[in-house]
Nucleic acid binder design. Structure first.
Lengths: 109, 109
DNA sequence: GTATTAATACTATAATGTAGTATTTTAAAT
DNA sequence: ATTTAAAATACTACATTATAGTATTAATAC
């Protein structure tokens, strides 16, 4: 297996955590993806992915304080680690490189 | 599930087929990935992925003619379909969009 | 304490990623 | 014509990632 394995949905989640910097937890991340990617995200799918990303060291998390809002479990806030950023850069780099190897004639449909 | 599902390795393979336009079959595709992505690709992994991509309609294939080289089964040549190109564009677009939503402060490590 | 709410945790299954081994097809060697 | 070796694809099995439904927890209002 590869060194920095990063699946497609994992990448989307990682990018969205970065996008919601300072306020990235389950709900905001979910909304960010849905708003920008034109797709529905189930809370279950998101949660397992967040866990995996943290386990891999691409994300860190901390538990937030209780708010004055009505009820609710405390939020778990996420941030992208330097290692996670590195993985993001790497996959992006790799694809850019590949795109550049494609001749113009390849897509003359 | 999403409309145009395309995994990470599938994307790499699809891009590599486009890159080897006119000469894309098992061996050349494998070599192209290894040369550009700094990773090893097993022939088995590649083959299952090619099959899946064809099944999804992202690739077409045709059997090549016998060559004058020493032995060997006939090659199966692949080309990216318009539908496959669309999937490639779509995932790239989506990620670009997401990158743009990330504030500069997000990666101040 | 009980109800209500916001959020995360758990569990299960489908899709994708990965690789080892087997088989087929072809032409060269004899 | 038969055997042999090479080049390639096909098959099979298992690991990881994707997805979503349901359960549980923790906090506040009453």
């Amino acid at each position: 297996m590869r060194d920095l394995q990063l699946g497609g949905f994992e990448e989307i989640v990682l990018l969205s955590v970065a996008a919601r910097f300072g306020d990235a937890y389950g709900v905001t991340i979910k909304l960010h993806i849905e708003a920008n990617c034109d797709r529905k995200v189930s809370i279950g799918a998101l949660r397992t992915t967040l866990n995996r990303l943290e386990k891999k060291g691409f994300l860190d998390s901390r538990l937030g304080e209780a708010t004055s809002m009505r009820g609710g479990k405390r939020k778990r806030f996420y941030v992208v680690t330097p290692f996670g950023k590195k993985a993001l850069d790497q996959v992006m780099e790799e694809r850019k490189k590949l795109w550049q190897t494609i001749p113009k004639t390849a897509f003359n449909f």
